[in-house]
Amino acid sequence: MTLGRLIVAVLAVVGAVLLQVTLLSRLGLPGATPDLVLVVVLAFGAVRGPTTGAGVGFAAGLLVDLIPPSLGYFGLTALLLAIAGYLMGVVAERTGGVVAISLITVALISVGLVFGRAAIGTLLGDPRVSWGEVPGLALTEAVYTVILAALVIPTLAAIDRFLEPRLSL
């Protein structure tokens, strides 16, 4: 990864995490909070491949776990987002970035993330997890993530092409 690409990654992740806690979670939208951090991680997986996806997911997850008011288990979001970024990268590589398949993958991963978080929370004995809410959260989360991903993935692809026309596909 070149310096320009690294800077883009850092800016995108920090910006997404800050927007997440200060704006998106305060909008009071129905159901889950739109997960911009997840979208950014998936975008890096889709555009730059599974290795970058996993790395960006891990770093973004650690930041999410650290930024107040997060009280969750430190490392849990990092774990989930690393897997999410990796899976997105693998699917994008195998299918060559077909839009429909990418968006379906985005939806499946976001549903899996909500269920995964609830499942791990239950396993670790978190009293807050209420399974009654989980299906609704997963559904709304998938909708928000797909909408945001349809905007963010092409944007990141365009930025990468602009930075290094030679390297991109």
Partner: peptide, 16 residues
């Protein structure tokens, strides 16, 4: 002043 709120899919109801 409230400057941040946790995501609802994290289940914890916390603010900064």
């Amino acid at each position: 002043q409230v400057i941040g709120i946790g995501s609802s899919q994290g289940f914890a109801r916390t603010v900064t």
